[in-house]
């Protein structure tokens, strides 16, 4: 009798524990993997920044304090990479956004065959980044690609040379590839935002006699503004870290003219196998990105308070 009563009382408890642990059981496998393969390496990487870690040197591994950062302060290649990162990110984001916005506006109008056109113009987004890089490197190659000859014919180049080996122009190569590759992302996001604008607003505005430019400035743009802001901010961070195209197309050359911070980190780790120095640069990059994000959050806060 007592036994039965006891087991009767224990059952809800066991069930309660089971219920409480259920969401954790669902999310545990994903969490364990994220912690093990992303969070632990992140912390490890931060510790490497203060240690002498070279893969091929068995005697390395000691704690060296701020030595890497002192070396970094003297490293002209690093400062050049910082300037290149600004140039690469600014030009890529600006051009992707402008062309993406125009494309989204064009696709927002219904026309015959829109589905097919949409699939075709968004196709570059599906091309693997390494292949996009190779493809554009080949297009810029005068032996095999048409672009140098066309640019020469237009008078933009003195001779049909490869701009990827011209220190003054090389950065335009990866930027062109990046713009081609990234327009669909902006266009998809902005098109989704455009289609969420209530259509009757436009009708009401045109009944009131507003022209297309006025409609764009007073309806479309204000509605798109939040999406534009968020997309540009996230994309800026993403593109400043995006080294694939540069590694594939120029490997940072000629004479480090296309080296950005992310590709510089990769080169230090992959070519020179200097994990300590690579991690120190990575830590600086992380701090810069954190500062950027904080500035954005503060800016948003002030703008919200004003509004």
């Amino acid at each position: 009798m007592t036994l039965a009563a006891h087991s009767h009382a224990a059952k809800p408890l066991r069930k309660r524990i089971a219920d409480a642990s259920e969401p954790y059981l669902y999310s545990a496998p994903a969490l364990i993997l994220i912690i093990g393969v992303m969070l632990v390496p992140l912390v490890l990487g931060i510790s490497y920044a203060f240690r002498d870690i070279q893969l091929l040197n068995p005697f390395s591994g000691g704690f060296i304090g701020l030595d890497h950062f002192r070396a970094l302060g003297q490293d002209q290649a690093f400062f050049r990479a910082l300037r290149n990162t600004l140039w690469w990110t600014g030009a890529s984001v600006f051009l992707q956004f402008i062309f993406g916005l125009i494309l989204a506006l064009l696709l927002d109008k219904p026309f015959a065959g829109r589905g097919l056109v949409q699939a075709l113009v968004f196709l570059p987004w599906a091309v693997p980044s390494f292949l996009a890089g190779l493809n554009w490197a080949w297009l810029f190659n005068p032996v095999i690609g048409p672009l140098p000859h066309w640019l020469h014919a237009l008078g933009l180049l003195d001779a049909p040379n490869n701009i990827l080996s011209d220190p003054q122009l090389a950065m335009w190569g990866p930027i062109a590839a990046n713009v081609w590759w990234g327009i669909p992302f902006f266009a998809i996001t902005l098109l989704a935002a455009l289609q969420a604008i209530p259509r009757d607003l436009y009708e009401a505005a045109s009944i009131d006699g507003a022209g297309p430019v006025q409609r764009f400035l007073s309806i479309t743009l204000p509605f798109l503004a939040p999406t534009i802001a968020i997309t540009i901010l996230l994309r800026t961070v993403w593109i400043s870290n995006f080294a694939d195209l540069i590694v594939v197309m120029t490997n940072g050359g000629p004479a480090d003219r296309t080296q950005i911070v992310a590709s510089y980190i990769f080169t230090q780790a992959f070519k020179r196998l200097d994990f300590g120095y690579a991690s120190a640069i990575a830590l600086v990059l992380l701090v810069l990105l954190l500062v950027y994000s904080l500035l954005i959050v503060l800016l948003r806060q002030t703008m919200l308070n004003k509004g």
């Binding site: 390496p41 992140l42 990487g45 870690i53 990769f266 992959f270 991690s279 990575a282 990105l289």
Partner: peptide, 15 residues
Amino acid sequence: TQMFPLVMLVAPIFK
């Protein structure tokens, strides 16, 4: 995990 540059993890993950 969506914010920080993944290139940071190249060296530690190899190790």
